[in-house]
Structures are given as structure tokens and as C-alpha cells.
Design a protein around this nucleic acid. Structure first.
Lengths: 223, 223
DNA sequence: TATATACGGAACTGAGACGTTCCGAAACCA
DNA sequence: TGGTTTCGGAACGTCTCAGTTCCGTATATA
């Protein structure tokens, strides 16, 4: 159902002719449509979002969407599934301390990205209990990557002897995500750098028995 | 708009005659309708809930609901606003330690209650950005009380010298609620005693520099 | 240039839900 | 008991939106 595993017929047709040129045709507009779906989803939520909104945003006809996806639900599912890009997990430099690693993740770019992911998750919330498949996909795309990042940083801290393995790292790995989603979805306050620092210095590091750098490492805010 | 501040006419009529007897009449059915609204809201969310569902659950006619509330939105707002009962904050015994106080709050009764509140909050999620009034009401009814409880227990611990005031108590006071909502709404896993204990012993107490009692104080689970 | 395909756009259908209106029944009051 | 009021229930109007159909058009191939 993903744009990556095309049905045999379409794949054959595309393989023989490969017409992706000029301006637009075949299935090359799928990414734009899926992007539009994600945007509208984040802005209005699943219930508030209409197929016509998505079509208008993508400058496409509603019929075009239904030629490619059988229903709104499957369109959204596909949009979430195809959202893996944007995960800038490439750099992830080792700063030498856990706090440095955690703070290094707080960049305007990644904040905005995380905020958007949470908005999407919030928009999906009402559907999660109705569609286990969507719940699994959303978890794998929106939640898991961030938790894995924290797990990785914790493991790195364990390896360098900064902390011991007897902490509840599994729970601590999701504290920041939980606090951020709580603040954004329920409290409706901004998830900014100051807030994220208060999570690191007020919860995670103290819980690990590490000192919370007050005004240290607060310099480079490169985005 | 709340059932507590009745319009002058109705209040006068009820004050002079006070007919609440026999079986039903006047506005005495309001609480049942509001309860039904809360139940349906928690089960299906705001978008999935229909006025007919609420009427059927309350064994009332749809017209009766519209005689009392001008719209679905105001019905839900009133239902959330009138939900203050159920907050069993009366006992709150001082166990002598912060951990004892926190663990004492983990009773099947209050777990179920908190879980229901989170379900309601989840069902309201999509509306919060659209109606600031609902957001404020929901916050005051569903979120604030629990955070205040934790703040109170923290202050008690400060007073008895168990912890110092230099911790980020404001952030720590909402950690449990954030983790619970995250687990329930996004992860869709049960918020049980074991999970809540892992929050206390794995996050809150370590962050406060207090020992996490392993198998201590685990006895009386009276609900 | 002629043909075929796929697209954008608009009109259409049907279902579901908000909100209204009406009516018979039941309970209160005198 | 008779009048009044409110209730439950059902039917109705209206609107929104999912999903479909149709058509003019633009592009790619020959």
C-alpha cells in the first residue's frame, strides 16, 4: 500500500516507458500529495481534515487522490508511513558528556520537526484506537525514532562510564517525549528550548545522578 | 451555563416549589445527561460522539438535550465543567515519606479515575485548539487537580526537610501525568500500578535524590 | 499531426449527524 | 379530576463530506 511497493502492472508500465519528464504525469506527484496530507493532518486533525483540503493543497483533483488511494483512511496511513524522511539522524556527534549530547539535540530545526510530529500524533489520536495498523505505523514513524535516539545516548553514557546501567533507562528514554506531547497537546504551550532544557536539567540528569549544567554549554544554538 | 448558576427565573421557580420528588421533572435529569455525555466522550471522542448516543445513554430524548443546551459543543463544555465530583482528595494521609505519600495515591480507584480523565482529555484533544474556553475548563478539571496534588506532596516533603527547594518541582509535578497520558494516548498501553511505580522510583524520586524503595511500602493496596 | 493516457476540476450521490418540530404520554398542581 | 408543563420519541430539513462520474485538456508516443 506504500508508494514503494507498486502493483506489478504499474511497475511494469513505469519500467518500460519511464516517462518522468516534461512536467508531471504517472505517479510522480504522490510525494506532494502525501506531504499535503501530512500538513493538513497536522493542522486540522484526522476528523477535521477533508480530502478536498488535501487535494487543494497539493493542487490536484480529488479524483486523482481516489485513483491512487481507495479511501481517506488509507491515504493518511500511507502518508504517515512514507514520512520517514526528515529524520536527520545522520550527524549525532559525541560531545563527551550525556548533557552535551542531549543539549546538542535541541536545535530549532529538530524542535520544529518534533513539534510537527507531535501535532500529527495529536491529529491521529482519535484514530489510534480504531486502527491498530495506523497506531503501529504512527508509533514506528513518530515515536520510536526519538526514543531510540535517547536510548542510544544513554547507552553511550553507560559505555563511557558516566552513568551505571542500574537506572530505569527505558522509562527515562521517553520522559522528554512524554513531557513534550503533554505540554503541546494538553497544555497547549510552546515546546521551546527553555522547556526542553528544564526537562534535561530538572528531570533526566538529576534522575541519573548527574549534575545539571546551569548556564554551561548554552552557547552554540546553530540550527 | 453551568448547572450550578441557574438563570434567575429557573432558580426562583425551583426555590418556591422545589418539586424534586416522585421520579423526574424540572432540570433534575441534567446530571445523568452530563454523566452520559462524559461517558460517551471518553469512549468515542468528541468527533465520534453523537448527540443521539448521549440521549440514548441517558434514556432521554434528543429534544430534551437541545432544550437545555444550545449545541453539542456547549453540552460537552458543561459536562466537563460539572465533572469536579469524583475527586476524592479528602483523605490524603501523611505517611511520613514522600515515596509513601506518592505510592499511597496509587489505588485501583484513583487509577481508574485518572485513566478515565485521560480518556476524556484524549477525546477532547482535537477540540482544545479550536475552543480556548473548553481548553481552560478541561485543564482546570482534568489536569490541574492532579498536578496540585503532587505539588502539595512535594511541599510537604520540603517542609519535613526530606528534599530541598532547589529542585524543579514545577516540572516534576507533571511528570507522572505526562507519562501516563503519553502511555495511554500515544502508546495505548495500560497505566497500571507497576507503570506508575516505575515513574516514582525510576524518575521522580531519583530526580529528587531520594532512594527508590524497591519492595518497600508495597503492602496495603486498599482501593 | 493524430491517438491514447492521465490529469484537474466540477457536478453528483448517498450517508450520517446536527438541530428543529411535532405529538402522545406522564407527572405535577389545584 | 382537569389543566399545565415537560418529557421521550420520531420524523424532518439541512449541511457537510466521502467517494464517484464525467468532461475538457495537456502531454507523450508514433
Amino acid at each position: 500500500m506504500t508508494q514503494l511497493d507498486l502493483p506489478a502492472e504499474a511497475e511494469a508500465a513505469e519500467a518500460t516507458t519511464a516517462p518522468r519528464l516534461g512536467r508531471k504525469r504517472d505517479h510522480s506527484r504522490d510525494p506532494e500529495i502525501l506531504d499535503a496530507a501530512i500538513e493538513v493532518l497536522a493542522e486540522t486533525g484526522y476528523e477535521g481534515m477533508t480530502v478536498e483540503m488535501v487535494a487543494a493543497r497539493a493542487k490536484a483533483g480529488k479524483a486523482t487522490l481516489y485513483r491512487r488511494w481507495p479511501s481517506k483512511a488509507e491515504l493518511v496511513l500511507d502518508a504517515v508511513a512514507c514520512m520517514k524522511r526528515g529524520d536527520v539522524e545522520a550527524p549525532l556527534p559525541d560531545t563527551g558528556t550525556l548533557r552535551g549530547d542531549l543539549v546538542a539535540l535541541i536545535k530549532p530545526r529538530s524542535i520544529a520537526e518534533a513539534e510537527k510530529k507531535l501535532q500529527i500524533m495529536a491529529g491521529l489520536a482519535s484514530m489510534l484506537s480504531r486502527s491498530p495498523e495506523l497506531a503501529d505505523t504512527a508509533y514506528a514513524t513518530l515515536v520510536e525514532p526519538r526514543a531510540n535516539l535517547n536510548r542510544m545516548l544513554f547507552q553511550r553514557a553507560v559505555d563511557r562510564g558516566e552513568i551505571t546501567g542500574e537506572h530505569d533507562l527505558e522509562t527515562l528514554a521517553v520522559v522528554s517525549a512524554a513531557m513534550a506531547s503533554y505540554r503541546l497537546m494538553l497544555l497547549r504551550k510552546p515546546v521551546d528550548r527553555e522547556f526542553l532544557l528544564s526537562i534535561i536539567d530538572g528531570v533526566i540528569l538529576p534522575a541519573l545522578g548527574l549534575p545539571a549544567g546551569e548556564a554551561a554549554t548554552d552557547g552554540p544554538t546553530q540550527g
